[in-house]
Simulated scan of single mutants.
Amino acid sequence: MSSSNSRLLNLTKKYPIFKKFYLFYNIYIRNYNFLYSGNQLGEEEELLSYFKKNYKGTYVDIGCFHPTKHSNTSKFYKRKWRGINIDLNPLTIDLFNFARPRDINICAAISDSAKSNDLYFIGDLSSENTLEKNHTKWLKKAFNYNQEKFFKKRIKTKKINDILEKYKFYDIDFMNIDVEGHEIKILKSLNLSKFNIKYFCVEIISQNYSKKHKNKILNYFKKNRYEIKFIDKIVGINYIFKKII
C-alpha cells in the first residue's frame, strides 16, 4: 500500500467522516485505470465470451480483493449479473459495498472447516494475505519479503457450502477462486452434488510447494468431470475449467 493511501486509511480510522472519501478515492481516483478493464490476464474477457451479451447470470468470487482492480467479475456486475463476493479483508468488503451494492458482499476467510486458523497478514488491502504458511515462503522468494513483512494472527474461517446455502446459490455460472495457495482446501470441501457450477476460474501458482500443489488441483477437476478451457498466455497461472455435460 502506498504511503499516501496509508495516510488516508489512517485518517478514516481516526475520523470516520473520511471513510466515503477514502472508498471513492480507492476506486475512482487511485485505481481509475482499472474502471473499464480490471482483470489481470484476460480471464474476464474469456469468461464473458462463454455467455450471450444479454444473459444475466450468477457468480461467486472468493478472494475478491477489489471491485475493479484485478477483478474477474467487474464487467459481469455492469451487465447486471448477481454475485457473492467474499474476502477476509474488511476494507475490501467496504469497497465492494460502496461500488457494488447490488451484490452480496461478505467479510470471511474461507477454508475446509469452520474453526480458528492462522492468518499471515500483510496489510488491510493486500491481495497476498494468506492462510497458507507455505505460501509465505513463495512470497518471500518472489517479492523479496522478509519475515517481518508478515503479521500472524488468529482468524475464524467459514465453509463455502454454508454461505451458498444461506443465500440459495445452487446454480452458479462461474466461481472465481484466488486465495493465495488455499484453493485446494476450498475445492475439496465444496459439495458439487448440491451446487451446480458451470465454470471455475482458479489461480494456480505451482511454485507454492512444488508441482504437487498444481497437480492436486488439476486432478480434482479431472475427477469431478471438468475440462481445461483456458490458461492465460502471459504467466500461465490462471485456469478456467468447464463442466463436462
Rank of each mutant, 00 (worst) to 15 (best):
I186L: 10
K185S: 13
T136N: 14
Y25P: 02
R79S: 12
K188V: 03
K223Y: 02
K14M: 06
I62S: 02
I163S: 02
V60P: 01
V235N: 11
C107E: 14
S71F: 04
Y50V: 04
Y15G: 01
L41R: 11
L23I: 05
E227R: 14
N26M: 15
S2A: 06
F76I: 04
K52I: 07
G236V: 13
N196H: 15
D87A: 08
F121Y: 15
F241N: 01
N219G: 11
N97R: 12
D171I: 03
E45V: 07
H182C: 04
Y220P: 03
K156H: 03
I155K: 03
E132G: 04
Y25K: 09
S3P: 09
R102A: 06
H213V: 08
D171S: 14
F241W: 02
K149C: 12
P67I: 12
T157G: 01
D112G: 02
Q147V: 12
D94R: 06
E180Y: 06
E203F: 10
D94H: 03
N33R: 13
R7Q: 10
K198G: 00
G63S: 02
A108V: 06
Y25N: 14
N72S: 10
V60M: 04
Y28D: 00
R7I: 14
G38R: 10
H213T: 11
F65P: 05
I237S: 07
I184T: 04
N26Q: 15
V235Y: 12
L91N: 05
M1P: 09
N238K: 14
I27E: 03
V235A: 13
S127G: 14
T58I: 12
N5Q: 08
K53N: 10
S2R: 11
K168F: 09
G181V: 09
S49D: 13
I177E: 00
A99I: 01
Y220V: 08
L131Q: 08
S189Y: 04
D94S: 14
K185P: 01
A99D: 10
Y226F: 15
N31I: 01
F195H: 09
I86C: 02
T73C: 08
G38N: 11
K166V: 08
K149F: 12
S210Y: 10
Y145E: 07
Y36E: 10
N105Y: 02
R102E: 10
T12E: 06
H135W: 12
T136D: 10
N129G: 10
V202L: 11
N161P: 06
G123P: 06
E132K: 15
L35F: 06
N85Y: 04
S49L: 12
H66K: 04
D173C: 03
S206N: 14
S210K: 15
G123H: 10
L35D: 01
F230M: 09
Y22H: 15
D94A: 07
T12H: 01
I186W: 01
F195N: 05
K19F: 00
N31L: 00
E44R: 08
K14S: 08
A114Y: 04
F76S: 07
